[in-house]
Amino acid sequence: MTQTPSLPRKEIELQLEKIMEKKIPGLTIAGLARVTGQRSQNLHHFKTEKPGHDKRLPKETIEKICTYLNCDISELITLKNQKSTHRPPPLNELDPSIQGYRLHCHLEHIAGRRGQSLFQVSKEIEVSYDVLRKMARNLLKRYSVDLIERILGYFNIEIKDLFTLEVDTTKILTSKIKNTYEIYFGLSPLMSRRKISIQQLMDDTGFTYAFINKLMKNEVKRLNIQSLEVLCNYFNVPPTELIKYRVTKKES
């Protein structure tokens, strides 16, 4: 009987403790948990240098670790007996609190470049297609060590080829926000100034009474571009005359 050859894999190692010692001597897992908002249990996943194949690495924890310690994922997760010289993109040193790293997976690009579909890859490495699809679309919340090692081995690539960090400037801390703004519609005062009734606006634009009434009372949850264009052209005004904002709260 022919023996099925074992799947190729590249063994990975986790370097969290070494990075902590290098970047912030004396920093403990408990301390890192406090500053990153991550559970100590999740951080302990990265403490063991040689993790088991069944260990799962939370994506958010990877992003938080790399952001706080300003390290690349290829420094945090390395191939056995290999050191990385790759560096992440620079964060804003003036206000690092408004930025962070977002983990991006290049699996679909790697497979496509080699003329393979994710379905084909899933069969070859014996991993669920749904898992690979979520991973390729950056929807997977946890990456198993086994999955990473299988993909690295199958494509014969390194961590930096599979994952990269991107600067995410959308992560603004809510504690930094001093003002709260409310969007409202300026249709009612505009109609009053032009002496246009709801009935006339209905006849001229084709909008329903319910829609116009909700706009006047600021009860509309969504306003599509086409409707906004109709109103702008009808009143001959820019969008800023119809969509306005006001400060509703300001912290002392």
Rank of each mutant, 00 (worst) to 15 (best):
residue 108 E to I: 14
residue 29 I to K: 03
residue 175 S to R: 10
residue 79 L to C: 15
residue 232 C to I: 07
residue 111 A to P: 04
residue 123 K to F: 08
residue 84 S to I: 11
residue 137 R to G: 13
residue 250 K to T: 14
residue 86 H to F: 10
residue 108 E to M: 14
residue 3 Q to N: 11
residue 202 M to F: 04
residue 45 H to K: 15
residue 139 L to A: 07
residue 214 K to W: 02
residue 153 G to R: 05
residue 218 N to P: 03
residue 164 T to E: 08
residue 249 K to D: 15
residue 199 Q to E: 15
residue 82 Q to D: 07
residue 94 L to H: 09
residue 92 N to D: 15
residue 121 V to A: 01
residue 45 H to I: 12
residue 179 N to P: 00
residue 234 Y to C: 10
residue 94 L to E: 11
residue 152 L to F: 09
residue 70 N to A: 10
residue 226 Q to A: 12
residue 154 Y to H: 15
residue 157 I to H: 01
residue 57 L to E: 01
residue 138 N to G: 06
residue 201 L to G: 04
residue 209 Y to E: 14
residue 71 C to N: 04
residue 242 L to K: 03
residue 116 Q to T: 12
residue 3 Q to S: 13
residue 180 T to Y: 10
residue 161 D to V: 05
residue 36 T to P: 01
residue 117 S to E: 01
residue 184 Y to C: 10
residue 59 K to L: 00
residue 86 H to T: 14
residue 95 D to P: 00
residue 163 F to Y: 11
residue 143 Y to H: 15
residue 14 L to S: 07
residue 130 D to H: 15
residue 9 R to A: 11
residue 237 V to N: 02
residue 242 L to R: 04
residue 237 V to P: 06
residue 34 R to G: 09
residue 105 C to V: 14
residue 77 I to G: 09
residue 77 I to M: 12
residue 126 E to D: 14
residue 30 A to C: 08
residue 207 F to Q: 03
residue 3 Q to H: 09
residue 134 K to R: 15
residue 251 E to I: 15
residue 190 L to S: 03
residue 140 L to A: 04
residue 33 A to T: 06
residue 180 T to W: 07
residue 154 Y to M: 08
residue 68 Y to I: 07
residue 143 Y to F: 15
residue 179 N to T: 06
residue 222 R to F: 12
residue 139 L to P: 00
residue 49 E to T: 10
residue 250 K to E: 14
residue 60 E to F: 06
residue 135 M to F: 08
residue 127 V to P: 00
residue 61 T to Q: 03
residue 33 A to I: 04
residue 206 G to I: 05
residue 229 E to L: 11
residue 142 R to M: 03
residue 122 S to N: 10
residue 206 G to A: 08
residue 102 R to H: 06
residue 211 F to E: 05
residue 24 I to Q: 05
residue 47 K to N: 12
residue 115 G to I: 13
residue 196 I to M: 03
residue 139 L to I: 02
residue 1 M to Y: 08
residue 115 G to W: 02
residue 206 G to N: 05
residue 35 V to G: 03
residue 149 E to M: 11
residue 182 E to T: 12
residue 34 R to C: 13
residue 188 S to H: 13
residue 91 L to H: 05
residue 164 T to L: 00
residue 29 I to D: 03
residue 135 M to E: 06
residue 216 M to P: 04
residue 49 E to S: 07
residue 116 Q to D: 12
residue 185 F to W: 11
residue 14 L to T: 10
residue 216 M to N: 15
residue 53 H to S: 15
residue 174 T to Q: 07
residue 13 E to M: 13
residue 141 K to S: 14
residue 183 I to W: 07
residue 198 I to T: 12
residue 187 L to M: 06
residue 72 D to Y: 01
residue 13 E to P: 01
residue 172 I to G: 11
residue 247 V to N: 15
residue 191 M to E: 05
residue 229 E to P: 00
residue 68 Y to S: 02
residue 154 Y to A: 08
residue 133 R to N: 12
residue 201 L to T: 02
residue 67 T to D: 06
residue 42 N to F: 11
residue 221 K to N: 12
residue 74 S to C: 05
residue 248 T to W: 00
residue 163 F to E: 07
residue 32 L to K: 02
residue 89 P to D: 07
residue 109 H to N: 09
residue 195 K to Q: 13
residue 51 P to G: 01
residue 123 K to N: 14
residue 41 Q to D: 04
residue 223 L to E: 00
residue 137 R to M: 14
residue 21 E to I: 04
